[in-house]
C-alpha cells in the first residue's frame, strides 16, 4: 500500500459579507479526490464548512469549484495531480454570488434556462411516430452529455468579468439553443432570440468553456460557432438574403418568442 502523506489545503470560508482562505491539513490516501479532502475537513475539523455535492462520480455537476484557480469538479480532481509540497487552494465559483464557503447561488442559470422556448416537434407521421436518422442527430447527442455543472458559465469572461449573467445565455445555454436549432424535428425558429435576447454576439470565441468542460463537449467548435454561423445566415449575409428572395429559401420555421413566465406565488 502506498505511504500516506499529508496535504495542505487553503479553503475559502466566508459568505457574501466577506471571507478568507483558511489552512487545513488532511491525510491523503490512494485515489483520494479534492472532494474527499473537503469531506475529511468537514468530518474532523470544521463541521460548518458548506459544500454542495451529490454523486461523487462526475455525473451530477454539483461540486463545481475553483481548484488552484481553475474551474473543476472537486470529485474528479485527484489529490495526486498537485505537487506534494504546495498547498491546494479551493475557492467557490467566482462568477456566481456566494452563499456560504464553497456554495454559490447558480440560480441565474435556471432563470436563463426558463427563457428558452421549448422543443416543439412537427406533427407525428401517419403511423403515430417520428422518425430520425442517426446522422441527423449525431451533433445534438454531444450536447446532451452536459451535466449542468456550470463550470463553462463560471469561466466565461462575459459572465465572470463583465457581469452579464442575466443578459447573456452563456456557453451552457448556447449549446442548448444549438441543439434545438439543429434538431431535425423541431419547428421553431429561435435565431432572432439567439441574436437579440441570448446575445450570442457577446461570445468572442476565447474557448475557455471548452477547456473546462468535464464532459469534453466541444462547446465552441460544435455549438457556439455553428450557432453564430446560423445567425449570420439569417442576419448578416446579404448574398443569402438575395438568394432567399429569389428562391424562397428553405422551409420557414415559426418564429419563437420568449416564453411568458409566471412567478410562483403563495407561501411555502
Amino acid at each position: 500500500m502506498a505511504a500516506e502523506r499529508k496535504a495542505q489545503l487553503k479553503v475559502y470560508r466566508g459568505d457574501k459579507e466577506g471571507g478568507e482562505l483558511k489552512d487545513y491539513e488532511v491525510e491523503t490516501y490512494p485515489g483520494m479526490v479534492v472532494l474527499d479532502a473537503i469531506h475529511d475537513i468537514q468530518a474532523k475539523q470544521e463541521p460548518s464548512l458548506a459544500v454542495r455535492w451529490n454523486c461523487k462520480a462526475g455525473r451530477c455537476g454539483s461540486c463545481s469549484a475553483e481548484i488552484n484557480g481553475k474551474p473543476k469538479l472537486m470529485c474528479m480532481t485527484r489529490m495526486t495531480s498537485f505537487p506534494e509540497n504546495e498547498p491546494i487552494t479551493v475557492t467557490p465559483m467566482k462568477s456566481f454570488p456566494i452563499i456560504k464557503d464553497l456554495v454559490t447561488d447558480v440560480s441565474s442559470n435556471f432563470r436563463m434556462a426558463k427563457k428558452i422556448p421549448a422543443f416543439r416537434p412537427r406533427p407525428k407521421e401517419a403511423d403515430g411516430t417520428w422518425r430520425m436518422q442517426q446522422e441527423d442527430i449525431d451533433r445534438i447527442q454531444e450536447f446532451r452529455k452536459c451535466i449542468e455543472c456550470f463550470l463553462c458559465q463560471d469561466t466565461c469572461h462575459v459572465i465572470r468579468d463583465h457581469g452579464k449573467a442575466e443578459d447573456f445565455a452563456g456557453p451552457r445555454f448556447l449549446i442548448a439553443l444549438a441543439g434545438l436549432d439543429m434538431h431535425p424535428l423541431d419547428t421553431l425558429d429561435r435565431r432572432e432570440l439567439v441574436k437579440d435576447e441570448f446575445k450570442v454576439g457577446y461570445c468572442n470565441i476565447t474557448r475557455c468553456c471548452t477547456e473546462v468542460c468535464p464532459e469534453h463537449i466541444n462547446i465552441t467548435d460544435n455549438g457556439i460557432i455553428p450557432m453564430k454561423e446560423r445567425v449570420a445566415d439569417d442576419y448578416f449575409d446579404p448574398l443569402r438574403w438575395v438568394i432567399r428572395k429569389f428562391t424562397g429559401g428553405p422551409e420557414k420555421k415559426e418564429k419563437a418568442h420568449l416564453p411568458v413566465l409566471q412567478e410562483k406565488t403563495g407561501s411555502k
Binding site: G69, P71, V158, C208, E211
Partner: peptide, 15 residues
C-alpha cells in the same frame, strides 16, 4: 481562462 482582465461592464463583444 479564469484570469482577470481590465473590468468593464460596457463590454459589447462582437455586438
Amino acid at each position: 481562462c479564469a484570469v482577470g482582465e481590465p473590468r468593464g461592464h460596457s463590454y459589447k463583444g462582437e455586438r
